[in-house]
Design a protein around this nucleic acid. Structure first.
Lengths: 202, 202
DNA sequence: GGCGGGTTGGCAGCGACTGCCAAATCTAAT
DNA sequence: ATTAGATTTGGCAGTCGCTGCCAACCCGCC
């Protein structure tokens, strides 16, 4: 296992890796199809593996958990988030920096339809929501030092303010996306996000 | 199992229910002890059942999931929250009403030590955190109409503001309790909560 | 052709959780 | 007291997500 040349594109070199990637995509596609067709909880790993033409064991080697099959490369979300925020010029305020990060993450989706589909699945499946929220917690933790640096906050643990600001940003994103889904994808999420923040910061 | 008992007049009357309640408490106590002793994930249902003197099957009949063993009254949290908030006089603002609800819920814990113990378990065990967050989502949903009524918000789903306010309150509670745990229970959570809210609302 | 490193698949097993069924128990009526 | 009826309990098997282990396999390389 050697992952070099990440980020898609170009030459995956060895034919081997190409096969791997193909299998990976096939699994992902099958999983997403079954999830939307019959629901997340009603779809078993065994079924996905069978229809994708791999063994269960191999499926688990590609994707460690069932949640990972949702495709979202959710770990990339965190990467993009922290990267975008840390790239903001120093004089940019915390709220603006966070807004930029949120926008960058939202821009990751291929299409509005795909985003809506995923969001809907996420919001309507309790077991998925839980996992997502947990991942969000990880993001918050990763973001902490960057935000603390932008405030006059000490990095000690006695100051909850940076954490509160981050959590609030996520809370607004949550409220916005939930409303967005409820509206069947009409309107712009970022507008809703701004509206939420305005309501909170009065 | 037991015999005799004509204690006339308890509110719960039937000796039967009393036995049930006893068993329930025994299970809860055993579970909490084992959780703090060896960690949540390292404790199996089989072990709890064995040490509590009931069958696995019965344990699952009392508490539907392992998470429920953490302190059964989490569903009461939601009750107290919504009750407290809806009891606030109409002229009280949303933030104040939410603050009252948070304070009421925090007052539910028997002691500071117990609260700290539970919070620590919650914050340090990923699987537990996820479940807790999901329950919080339910609370948010239950709270929505009450908060919307206090704002000029329409009850339609197009307005994310009420949701954002609620989610922000929870976010601040999160940040506060996390900091509190990090500080080994020193200080008052409500002070931290106020600090968080101040940082967010400028 | 043969070799070594990474990959695959199957199998057994764990832990949470559920359905089913029979035995033990409590409650109420005879 | 002795029934009958409604509950509760425990055990057993089975599902589902997930992991460890091991043999078979496929690749590029000598």
């Amino acid at each position: 296992m050697k992952q070099e040349a990440k980020t898609a594109t170009g030459a995956p070199s060895t034919l081997w890796d190409r096969t791997r990637q193909l299998a990976s995509q096939e699994i992902l596609k099958t999983a997403l199809r079954l999830f939307t067709e019959q629901g997340y909880d009603q779809t078993t790993i065994a079924q996905i593996a069978r229809e994708a033409g791999v063994s269960q064991r191999t499926l688990f080697r590609y994707f460690g958990t069932k949640e990972d099959l949702l495709g979202g490369n959710q770990h990339r979300f965190g990467q993009v988030l922290t990267d975008t925020i840390s790239e903001q010029p120093a004089e940019v305020g915390v709220w603006e920096a966070l807004r930029a990060g949120v926008a960058a993450v939202l821009a990751l989706h291929d299409s509005r339809e795909q985003a809506l589909e995923r969001f809907r699945l996420l919001h309507n499946t309790p077991s998925l929501r839980a996992g997502w929220l947990e991942k969000r917690l990880q993001f918050q933790e990763d973001l902490l030092p960057h935000i603390e640096a932008r405030m006059d906050a000490a990095t000690g643990s006695a100051d909850p303010r940076a954490l509160a600001v981050i959590a609030t940003a996520f809370a607004c994103l949550d409220a916005a996306s939930m409303t967005w889904v409820g509206n069947d994808g009409n309107g712009d999420i970022m507008d809703l996000y701004d509206e939420c923040l305005a309501a909170v910061r009065g």
